[in-house]
């Protein structure tokens, strides 16, 4: 991280590595590549859901209730006769949208609190640290449940609740990065040149914090998806008939003895995405996280 010119410190890093480094990364990490392809397939399915899905995800067909997997309905139908494959495909939309937007909210909140805690000193820093500690004292799901209690249910509410519940870990990592950057020589040099403080923060501290934060964001998308589908599974997140995986798993729970595919199909869709994302996240972290890279 101790590059001579901080203005150019972060952006060129991936670019400079790109021509040789990136291609070899896919070859060096076959699991990563496979997982990335799986995750990309989910994104494609979500984007083109209306073209890919064979049925309308919320169209009920009472003549075709709780059918097992067949040629017409490859993943079967649920207790309202809705096609599970179509619902799983549309569910990818909700999972990815909720996951990405809530992580961005969490990252933005974490950036603000983390910067404030890292740059301030004395009692203010101490108080902010205890604030972060107290956010971290509650597991993200329970924090999200508390926010849902205030906000109510729905897709937008879930995004906000999950986002707010993720601020703690982001704030902690941002603060740790700020602490490392602010003792660097180029910060001292900038201050000696009597560049205004906020400008130093904007031009010299922020770029060095944003990149590790971006790595964190990609890693934590899967956590956000898991928490949001957990909320739906508990019956307090997204409301029916939205094709949300957590909701579908919960609906199928009551029929598990004679229609196990109702829970299993959306469940496997969720599990596969989470496993793929966590392999992708591990790969990205090992390649790009400055702390791990230095150790390697």
């Amino acid at each position: 991280m101790s590059l001579p010119s901080s203005d150019a410190a972060i952006p060129p890093l991936p670019r400079a590595k790109a021509p040789r480094g990136r291609r070899s990364m896919f070859l060096r990490r076959p699991f990563f590549t496979v997982a990335l392809i799986v995750a990309a397939a989910y994104v494609l399915a979500a984007t083109f859901a209306p073209h890919v899905a064979p049925f309308d995800p919320v169209k009920q067909d009472f003549m075709a209730m709780m059918q097992g997997p067949s040629l017409v309905h490859p993943l079967g139908t649920d207790s309202y006769g809705q096609d599970i494959l179509s619902r799983v495909i549309y569910g990818a939309r909700y999972a990815l949208i909720i996951g990405i937007f809530s992580v961005l909210i969490g990252a933005a909140g974490g950036l603000v609190i983390g910067l404030a805690a890292g740059l301030s000193g004395g009692w203010l820093e101490w108080a902010l640290m205890r604030l972060i500690d107290s956010i971290l004292a509650l597991p993200s799901l329970i924090l999200a449940v508390a926010f849902i209690a205030i906000l109510g249910q729905g897709v937008d509410k879930v995004v906000v609740a999950v986002g707010l519940s993720m601020i703690g870990p982001f704030a902690r990592t941002v603060r740790a990065d700020v602490m490392q950057v602010r003792v660097q020589l180029f910060i001292e040099a900038a201050q000696l040149m009597s560049i205004p403080y906020l400008r130093v923060v904007w031009r010299h501290v922020l770029p060095n914090v944003i990149f590790p934060l971006a790595v964190q964001v990609t890693i934590r998308v899967s956590e956000a998806i898991l928490v949001s589908s957990s909320l739906s599974f508990l019956g307090i997140g997204v409301t029916p008939p939205t094709p949300d995986w957590g909701l579908m798993i919960a609906e199928g729970r009551d029929f598990v003895s004679f229609a196990p595919w109702m829970s299993a199909m959306p469940g496997f869709a969720l599990a596969l995405l989470l496993i793929a994302l966590s392999i992708v996240g591990d790969g990205i972290r090992e390649e790009f996280d400055p702390k791990l890279r230095r150790g390697a």
């Binding site: 899967s222 898991l226 589908s229 957990s230 599974f233 957590g246 798993i249 199928g252 729970r253 598990v256 003895s257 196990p260 829970s263 299993a264 469940g267 496997f268 969720l270 599990a271 989470l274 496993i275 994302l277 966590s278 392999i279």
Partner: peptide, 29 residues
């Protein structure tokens, strides 16, 4: 270990109920 950390627990629970409690009838649902 990788699968275990990423697998959603509520799905695992339902699968365990289906297999051990419904199919094999070893444990209470």
């Amino acid at each position: 270990a990788l699968t275990g950390t990423a697998f959603p627990s509520f799905l695992l629970g339902i699968l365990l109920i289906w297999f051990f409690a419904v199919k094999l009838q070893l444990f209470p649902v």
